[in-house]
């Protein structure tokens, strides 16, 4: 299925409590070399046809204005999978 994939991460300088909790659990499970975990989001926008340049452009706009909040998150990638 053609899709646009939007990847969002919490900003580097912000505490990511979810990542911290998972990192603590991994350490408890014996993964001593993992020094940190950060958890973001992958959002897939599905299409019933080929994705066009215009779709990608629109998706980038939505990624910035709605799918992420630039106060707390960064859009790290918007990619097409046709």
């Amino acid at each position: 299925m053609p899709k646009i994939i939007v990847e969002i991460m919490p900003k580097q300088d912000l505490l990511d409590p979810q990542g911290k909790a998972v990192a603590n659990a991994l350490t408890r499970m014996g993964n001593k070399d993992i020094s940190g975990v950060r958890i973001g989001k992958r959002i897939e926008l599905h299409f019933d046809r080929e994705v066009t340049d215009k779709d990608l452009e629109d998706a980038k706009k939505q990624a910035k204005e709605f799918l992420s909040n630039d106060v707390i998150e960064d859009v790290v990638a918007v990619t097409v999978e046709n």
Binding site: L14, P17, Q18, A21, N69, V71, I72
Partner: peptide, 9 residues
């Protein structure tokens, strides 16, 4: 600004 998960989770 923004509002995020409580520091103590």
């Amino acid at each position: 600004g923004g509002l995020i998960r409580n520091e103590h989770q």
